[in-house]
Amino acid sequence: MSFKTADICDDFASKLEVCQSEFKSYGKKPKFFGPISTVKVFEDNVLVVDLLESIPAGSVLVVDGGGSRRCALMGDRLGGIAESRKLAGVIINGCVRDSEDLAKLDVGIFALGTNPLKSKKEGKGEKHVTVTFGGIDWKPGSYAYADQDGVVVSDQKLL
């Protein structure tokens, strides 16, 4: 489905929150949307893997990594899981690695930047909770719409 976040803002501004964080696109799909699933972690991606393997196809996994740029929360292996499970996309308030490989995957991947260092593997964090970054609350079950102009979130499906 074709859409532009600018057009969504024009048509539904009163029903949206606009993310103030500026993300870079790392997956093959620079535009994606779907229902949100959330995970809150800090420099630990065990729960990210858990959700990538369990949330429904078509979902957007929103990862609140606390904005840390000290390690990556997703690399080629996790990106491959997102692609194979047919997720719409992943939005990471943190970093990715293996960016050359991520660019070949047929999935949307937005992150703040890259870092070659892998994360810890302790399993700490929270799943399916409201997370806050970029000036908005990301609630499980809300809808995220992402493209080259940014990310907008609505409590209801707009497209």
Rank of each mutant, 00 (worst) to 15 (best):
S2T: 05
I8A: 07
C9Q: 15
D11T: 11
A13P: 00
S14R: 14
K15F: 08
C19W: 07
Q20I: 00
S21G: 01
S21Q: 10
E22H: 12
Y26F: 14
G27D: 10
K29D: 05
K29M: 12
F32V: 06
F32E: 10
F33S: 11
G34I: 09
G34T: 03
I36C: 09
T38G: 09
F42E: 07
N45L: 01
V48D: 07
V48E: 12
V49D: 11
S54F: 01
S54Q: 08
I55P: 02
I55R: 02
P56Y: 10
G58Q: 05
S59H: 06
S59Q: 02
D64M: 10
G66L: 06
G67N: 13
C71Q: 03
C71W: 04
L73I: 07
M74C: 12
M74N: 05
G75E: 13
A82R: 08
E83N: 10
K86Q: 14
L87Q: 10
A88L: 03
G89C: 02
N93T: 00
C95K: 06
S99I: 00
L102N: 07
A111R: 03
T114R: 00
E122K: 13
K124G: 04
G125D: 04
G125P: 05
T130D: 15
V131Y: 10
W138H: 05
K139T: 15
S142D: 15
Y143V: 08
Y145H: 00
A146G: 11
D149W: 04
V151S: 02
V151F: 06
V152Q: 05
S154V: 05
L159T: 02
L159A: 09
